[in-house]
């Protein structure tokens, strides 16, 4: 119950694509909370869902109300935030989507962020899976959840730089307060299997390779038509690759 999966990696490697297919596949096994942690909020497009209010907007609203001193003195701000977050949730059949939106501006958000984490953690408890599509980079992971992450999927492209970035991420995550159960590597958009150099690098950095997803010829057409990625056909390499990862991870 309540498995938390984070999809991370450097910019443009296919985090959102992998996360979207992961969310869709998992939604056949249970209900999924999809969290779009990228300020450019594009997970909803990949999932074919509308965009709701963002968590960032809720945080701004409450911070502004605090600044102006307009809130009732007795109504707890945690309750107000709980409500705002539920309102921001985009609900569909098996998938509910929450977009984090822009990070905070200058000023103090310690309390607001703490309350938000509590709200989101409690919300996540009632889902079978929580899948977080990260923004490129790492430091935000600790901001998003106080809960432990069960699986961190680092996506890389077929470059040495990509693998090195993944290795750095793995090191960094150890310093964060969030506990991470399993860290695995997915190499995306390969053309003819994995070149020897890449295989060597993966071994050298001690990364656990869980899947290699080939370049997907179906994506171009969907992108052209502006259709959501989850419409990929059954034989799509991305879809099959993600399903294979789910099996290997035993999710």
């Amino acid at each position: 119950m309540a498995v938390t999966i984070v999809v991370a990696g450097k910019g443009g490697v296919g985090k959102t694509a992998v996360a979207a297919l992961l969310i869709e596949s998992l939604s056949k096994k249970g209900v999924v909370l999809a969290i779009d942690a990228d300020p450019s909020t594009n997970l909803n497009l990949a999932l074919g869902l509308p965009l709701g209010e963002t968590v960032g907007k809720a945080r701004e609203d409450i911070t502004e109300a605090i600044q102006k001193g307009t809130l009732s003195p007795t109504v707890s701000k945690q309750d107000v935030l709980d409500m705002k977050i539920r309102e921001a949730l985009v609900e569909s059949n098996k998938i509910d989507l929450l977009a984090m939106g822009r990070p905070e501006g200058p000023g103090c958000y310690c309390a607001a962020n703490h309350m938000l984490r509590l709200t989101i953690d409690r919300l996540a408890k009632s889902y079978d899976y929580t899948v977080i599509d990260s923004e490129a980079g790492m430091e935000h992971i600790s901001r998003q959840t106080t809960r432990d992450v069960d699986v961190l999927i680092i996506v890389s492209d077929v470059t040495i730089r990509g693998i090195m970035a993944a290795a750095r991420m793995k090191e960094l995550i150890k310093e964060l307060r969030t506990k991470v159960g399993k860290i695995v590597l997915v190499v995306n958009r390969s053309r003819d299997g994995l070149p020897q150099e890449i295989q060597d690098a993966i071994q050298k950095y001690g990364l656990e390779l869980i899947g290699v997803i080939p370049e997907d010829p179906y994506i171009g057409e969907l992108d052209m038509k502006g259709s959501p990625l989850i419409e990929l056909p059954g034989e799509s390499p991305l879809r099959r690759g993600v399903e294979d990862i789910i099996t290997k991870l035993g999710l």
């Binding site: 911070t63 003195p73 707890s76 701000k77 103090c108 310690c110 309390a111 607001a112 309350m115 509590l118």
Partner: peptide
């Protein structure tokens, strides 16, 4: 109220009960 303005005595009471 706490220095940040976000935690009043009432918020404190609610937060402590919750966690």
């Amino acid at each position: 109220v706490a220095n940040c303005g976000a935690i009043s005595w009432f918020d404190g009471r609610a937060a402590y009960k919750l966690d």
